[in-house]
Design a protein around this nucleic acid. Structure first.
Length: 421
DNA sequence: TCTGGGGTCCTAGGACCC
DNA sequence: TCTGGGGTCCTAGGACCC
């Protein structure tokens, strides 16, 4: 097998730059919802010492002084540019797996016979840049885990110019010997600590560990990772995304919330969004959950966190049914006297249309009407902002998040179209 | 003053069944 | 005095990913 991982460089920050070429050498950060913390940063921002996940309020003054520019997240823009990048990649390989908003695996079987892989990587970079404006790096290897490692090398060492080919074993070993074990795909902080205690600190140490020992001490997941590092593919390409198993909509509030009314309103709003997502997946859910919690960073506050679920009598994707459930749950999750900072709705236990045991006591005749109503609402709302909402979702939404530095939706809203003078 | 959001998979243990 | 064995399903919690 030969896989390539194509990974966008500082994806969100680069998206902002596509429409702002004037920011070519400027440090850029993109902030999480509520302008809470840094979720993406350009190379220039990294160079002036900004770190991923840093709270915005701690750095905003010094960042501005150094000439940096911050953006609130603009997911409409990022999703659209992502789709363009993925479409471009589909021209380059027969099979691709869209792994995340900014990454895709390419199956290079066949391609590797006729082209020099390093050259292929550079052509790939050039094409994506020309067609979408997005800078990418390319990591190539015989397994997905090694392709990921190659991508790490391409990011870390500028001499590679963003392309690393790990087809040859000696190149794999050379890179792994200088690669910390926690940089491996599938090794997080907990596993790092455990492995370090066993004297395994580099990727190469892990690659040379006996798989049976790993299976015994850890799980089949890490065993697969080790096999992949040794060059045996265990993780295949998944071209067709499997249907979701759960849908979560949750947000940190723009300011603290104390009343049941506000919690109810926010939870209803999330429930309506979650129902929309569920219908987009063409699924019906049977389990609805609601959670809420206080702010763990406010040490002076009494802390509280709770999640409650309920099972519906038959699967649904009708917003009204889901609102009914979440309303009941949020009343029980809410507790007086606490400062809430976040709440959320989770939908799970999904069924396909018509593939479920219907409830004997509830007539199915309601179904067609419900389908038509939801379809109509979705159709109207699809044109942009939510034009039809349920009263429970609230009007003013004082609890909703803050986004002070959002860029225009250049590609998804006519009013935001870029004007060239 | 101010710290994100949305997912997946695996495992262990308990409930329950025959 | 003596108290089985094997299986499935569900759930909570832990780990990881971007």
């Amino acid at each position: 097998m030969t896989y390539a991982l194509v990974d966008c460089n500082s994806f969100y920050a680069s998206c902002e730059r596509v429409f702002r070429p004037d920011l070519k050498d400027t440090p850029i950060v993109v902030l999480s919802n509520n302008d809470g913390c840094v979720v993406a940063l350009s190379k220039e921002a990294k160079n002036i010492g900004i770190k991923m996940c840093e709270p915005w309020f701690k750095i905003k003054n010094s960042f501005a002084n150094k000439g940096g520019v911050a953006f609130s997240s603009n997911y409409e823009l990022y999703a659209d540019i992502s789709a363009r990048v993925m479409q471009t990649l589909e021209h380059l390989a027969p099979r691709i797996e869209i792994y995340s908003i900014d990454e895709a695996f390419l199956d290079l079987s066949g391609v590797d016979f006729c082209t020099d892989l390093d050259q292929f990587g550079h052509e790939c970079q050039e094409k994506v840049k020309r067609w979408t404006g997005m800078p990418v790096r390319v990591g190539i290897g015989p397994t997905k885990t090694l392709a990921k490692a190659a991508s790490y090398g391409a990011k870390k060492y500028t001499a590679t110019q963003g392309v690393v080919d790990l087809s040859k074993q000696e190149r794999q070993r050379k890179l792994m010997s200088i690669m910390p074990v926690e940089e491996i795909w599938g090794v997080g902080s907990r596993l790092k600590a455990h492995l370090n205690r066993m004297g395994i600190t580099t990727a190469l140490d892990l690659a040379d560990t006996d798989t049976k020992l790993i299976r015994r001490r850890f799980s089949i997941v890490l065993e697969r990772t080790v096999m992949e590092l040794k060059g045996y593919p265990c993780i295949g390409l998944e071209e067709h995304p499997s249907t979701k198993k759960e849908i979560v909509v949750s947000r940190t509030f723009g300011k603290k919330v104390t009343t049941l009314e506000s919690i109810n309103e926010a939870v209803s709003d999330y429930a309506a969004r979650a129902s929309e997502k569920l219908r987009r997946e063409k699924q019906y859910c049977k389990v609805v959950s609601v959670f809420a919690r206080t702010n763990p960073f406010r040490l002076q506050d009494q802390q509280y966190s709770n999640i409650l679920s309920c099972k519906l009598s038959s699967p649904t994707n009708d917003t009204r049914d889901i609102l009914h459930a979440t309303k009941m749950l949020s009343r029980r999750v809410y507790k007086k006297g606490y400062n809430f900072i976040k709440a959320g709705v989770m939908l799970s236990d999904f069924y396909d249309k018509d593939v479920y045991q219907s409830d004997f006591f509830i007539p199915n005749s309601r179904r067609p009407k419900s389908e038509r109503l939801m379809k109509t609402i979705d159709k109207i709302n699809a044109t942009g902002e939510s034009k039809i909402t349920f009263a429970a979702q609230g009007i003013k939404k004082p609890w909703s998040m803050q986004r002070h530095f959002q860029s225009p939706k250049y590609t998804t809203n006519w009013n935001d179209l870029l004007v060239v003078k």
